[in-house]
């Protein structure tokens, strides 16, 4: 498959392009400069490959969870590019793209969700078990043993995750983050169905954002 993948949900800008063979990759920390960097770097990858958007089969975007604004930058850019060239989109959850970087039998992925919370999910034999959750790191449940802990949550909350889970973890890899080259691999499995550009749905997971007027009133009372 010919695919472009992009993720702007972390402090990295992660891009990868394949025309069927080896992928061209841009994966670097850019701080808050995703808006400045993404399109020019995509342009460079396309030029390096001698490709145009119109030759692609689809554009893959990091669906979340992650930085809310970051998710929308990737999604908005993916939508704009896809619409311009009449391409479908493929959304891949960020946690899936972290889990796929480890080849152990069991992975517990925890990404820092700020506000003393993590986005978490468990994977066994390369498949996600259950839904992606958001909550306090102290509440992350990990039954049995033989798990490898992946993602920024293990760096942000070492006491609540590494110390507390203790023997259930055989190793931790807190440095792993979503990587566009992994999105390409996952999209190529066919497990993530392509959809029309306007049907993009982001996975925010944290869906309680503000108190309603009624709740504010109840809190004051």
């Amino acid at each position: 498959m010919k695919l472009l993948a992009l993720d702007t949900s972390t402090d990295h800008l992660s891009l990868a392009l394949t025309l069927g063979g080896a992928a061209l990759v841009f994966h670097q920390p850019v701080g808050q400069q995703h808006a400045e960097r993404t399109l020019p770097e995509i342009g460079r990858l396309l030029a390096e490959a001698g490709a145009t958007l119109g030759q692609l089969d689809a554009i893959v975007y990091g669906q979340g969870p992650g930085s809310f604004t970051g998710l929308r930058i990737a999604c908005g850019i993916a939508q704009g590019l896809a619409f311009s060239a009449g391409l479908p989109l493929i959304g891949v959850p960020t946690l899936d793209a972290v889990a796929a970087q480890d080849d152990g039998a069991r992975q517990l992925v925890c990404l820092d969700a700020r506000m003393n919370q993590v986005f978490s999910a468990r994977y066994e034999q390369g498949q996600r078990v259950g839904d992606i959750a958001v909550g306090a790191p102290e509440e992350v449940d990990c039954p049995g043993e033989g798990w490898t802990g992946l993602g920024s949550g293990f760096a942000a909350y070492p006491d609540a995750l590494v110390t507390r889970l203790g023997q259930t973890l055989i190793a931790t890899r807190p440095e792993l983050k979503p990587h566009a080259a992994v999105y390409l691999d996952l999209a190529a499995t066919g497990r993530y169905p392509p959809h029309a550009a306007e049907s993009a749905e982001l996975l925010y997971v944290r869906n309680k954002i503000a108190l309603t007027a009624r709740e504010q009133q109840a809190r004051r009372a």
Binding site: L39, L53, G76, I77, G80, L81, S84
Partner: peptide, 19 residues
Amino acid sequence: LGGALMVGASFANALAFGL
């Protein structure tokens, strides 16, 4: 609003870039 502006900007710039 920063986040709101970013949505229109991302879509508009990518669409123009693609075209």
